[in-house]
Structure formats: C-alpha cells, structure tokens
Design a protein around this nucleic acid. Sequence first.
RNA 1: GGAGAAGUACCCAAGCGGUAAGGGGCUCCCCUGCUAAGGGAGUAGGUCGGUAAACCGGCGCGAGAGUACAAAUCUCUCCUUCUCCGCCA
Length: 421
Amino acid sequence: MLDLRYVCDNLDAVRAGLARRGGTFDLADVAALAARRRELLALSEKLKAERNAASAEIAALKKEKKNADALIAEMKEKGASIREYDDELARVETTLSDSLLRIPNLPHASVPDGKDSSENRETRRVGKVPEFAFAPKTHWDLGEALNIFDWPRAAKISGARFTVYRGAGARLERAIMNFMLDTHTANGYTEIFPPFMVNRESMTGTGQLPKFEDDAFAVKNNGYFLVPTAEVPVTNLHRDEILNAADLPIKYCAYTACFRAEAGSAGRDTRGLIRQHQFNKVELVKFARPENSYEELESLTRDAESILEKLGLPYRVVALCAGDMGFASAKTYDIEVWMPSYNRYVEISSCSDYEDFQARRMNIKFKDADGKNRLAHTLNGSGLAVGRTTAAVLENFQNPDGTVTVPEALRPYMGADVIGG
RNA sequence: GGAGAAGUACCCAAGCGGUAAGGGGCUCCCCUGCUAAGGGAGUAGGUCGGUAAACCGGCGCGAGAGUACAAAUCUCUCCUUCUCCGCCA
C-alpha cells in the first residue's frame, strides 16, 4: 500500500511511476476521497470535543443533584450529527482503503523500463551451459524411466498439476530441501516452520488480497487460505509489531509446500515439475532498515544464488523491467536456471524489495535512534523453488545411460552418488 | 465438538454507567563514603487530524457492532488464552 499522504501530495510523480508498470489507475478519485475524509474528520472531531466537555458538565450537575435536561437535549442533537458524519466517514474510508489496497507499488528508479519479460535486463550469467554428446532427455521422461515420479497416479488421487514422488525421487526432493535450509541457516538465517494455512489478514498484508483472490486456494469450512508461498506466513510473523532496531536486519528462511490455483496458465508447462498446484519451496525473508534495504536485496539474491553455485547448476540473474514486476515489489531480480528441456533459462527464484509497501499494510515498524517509529522494509526471495531444482538437477546431470549423477553437495543428503543404474 | 472462566499500559492489578485506582518496573531528582535501603516527581502505547514543529484535539480497556446525553462498565457477534469433558496423530 502506498502512503496516502504521499500520493495526495505527489499525484503526478505517482501517476508516472504507475504508468511504467502499464495499466491505468484512477488517482483523482483517491485524492478527492482523501480530501473529503479530512473534512469529515474535522467536523466530527469538533463535535466530539464539545460532547466530551458537556459530558463532564452533565456528570458534575448530576453529582450536585441539579437538572441537566437542557444540556442532554442539546447533546442529543449533536450526537445525531456526529453519527451522520461518522457514517459517511466510514463509507469514505472503506472505499479509500479498498482503492489503495489495489494500487501496486512504485518501481524503484533503478528498475529498467519495459512492458513485459522480453525487456528484462540480464545482470549476470554464471556457470557453463552443459553440452551433451547425446540427446538429453526431459526431466519428466528421465523421471518416468527411473520410476521416481508417478503422474498417472497423482492424477488419479488428486488431478492435473500434481506429482507423486517415489523412491530416489522423494529422497532427492527432500535432500535438496534440507541442503537449502542447512545452507541458509549456516549463513545466518533463522529457520521457521510456519502453518500452511493462513487467515485473510495475512494474505492482505503481503499483497495477495484483495486483488488476486482467484490465484489462491481457499479452505471452504473456515475461510483460511493455503499458503501460495512461505512469504505470507513468515512476513506476517511481525505484523502489528514494533521491532527492536538493533535486531535489524532480521533474516528468516522457511520451507513450506506452496499452493497455487494457476488460474490463467491453462495449457502452459503441462508436463513435468515446472508448474504445479502444490510445490515445495524454501523461502528467504528479511526485515531491514529503509536506508540499506537495497544492499540487503543484493545480498539476499546472492544468498539464493549460492545454492545453484554449490550444486553446480548454470544460471543467470535478470532485473525485471517495470512492466513485468509483481504487484507489491519495488524491485525484483529473477534467478533463472538452465533447463535443457526448455533449451533456455527458467525462473527458479524471484528476489524482491517491497520497501514499505507490505510493512504499511501489516503495520511493521521499528524504533529509530531518535525514538520515532518508522516503517521497516520487507524483502524476500525463493532460496529456491525445490521442485524446479530437482528438475534442473536431473536434466543437467543426466548421463547417456539414463542415470543421473548426484551433485557433490547433495551426496551426504542422498546417501548415493548416482540415481538409477 | 460441549461446558465454564478470563483478556485493562513493559509486568501484576482495581474499577462493573459520569474525565482510566494502586503496586512493581523504568526515567529524573533528593538523601546518604560506594552499593543497598529510604524520600519525591514523572511515566497509556500507538494512531489520525489541525499543521512542518511546539501545542491542541479525536480515537483507544482483545476486535467489531448496538443501546444511551454519556460505555472499560449494559447487550449482541467474533477472536485469543486457560480449565474440565469428548474426539484424535
């Protein structure tokens, strides 16, 4: 959520920033509602001050057993006016906050212009893309031949876009998860294991609601949502809190299963592990001081990349252009791993600085050196998507005979050097 | 799932229609070689508005609604915690 006062005082700058994302937003409405809100507040508060003074008088009169009927009658009328103002105020504030909650974040100045992913800017490329002396297989063909994935049965017990892992496949997924968590905790991130269902307030706090309700799975009998990412429960840990400034930056890592409706992506990535209704992910979350949150974004991105480096998987980092960024983000780097079956780099992590956009929704502050409360900055990034990492390991380390060499870093977790054979 | 109890500040806690007691802690001061003890004063977070500040005002007793001139106090709905019962990995 943008700061209402800032929006009203800088209408043109805000319009220009939002225009970089594409789409149009009716800010005139917001400004008009904000002005009306201030008017109503002034009217209502003046009467309330009078009422408070009169209440004290009435109490004093009653104590002295004197008649207060005239004053009470007068206050009765004022009370009716207060109610009218407050009713309109409530309507104005509801509309206003609903509008604000649907306006995306402003892109940071360093974010490149552009309308979609074709205009993202490559920042760096690491590792060597493998050249196979044989025709490499896709991870779904490899997986079926090795009997480590069972999609027909996943479809039977659940439906499309679900996977059953078995044997070495299940073990590999778990090995990768543990390797990621161990790496991040060794690097100063505190491990969190949060609930996989959250309430509406949490989904609103990180920005999934109210605008993107169709993308989430809602639980029918209690109104909870299945988490689309650990970002939601973990960032909301500190909702409505004033953090100790000395504790910043706070760094968390968390594994959760992630659940996404994938509305609107019918027909895309229908085979393999790339796009699932349920997938595993290890997430990194930071709470930072505003003055160095962009440094924290750089280091968070590096921390996510370190997983790919340790595994020996080739990847690149791209800075998303303004038109391709997520709703709440001020700046995003995607990390893309080389996926032989796609013959291109495929997103495996998205690292974002939200500045105070989420913190304002969630009311997350910290006490400054001069004792003032300021909004914290929140950041997060996948560290990494586990299923896509499994796919990348299988494809990049496959051998001509259909076996897969286990990367060195995973061997202690796998208890094996090779899958199959 | 059933029955009961409770939610007031950093902590404990009183108040149960008429401007939010008290204690601990914390901050400052006094008193003492130092410390401890003692004495005094201050201490309702936040947030919204006038307005950038001083200052003034609105809201605030778990959340939201209602009754009333006036709500921590009365009514309703919800949330959380605790106790007992039931069920359960």
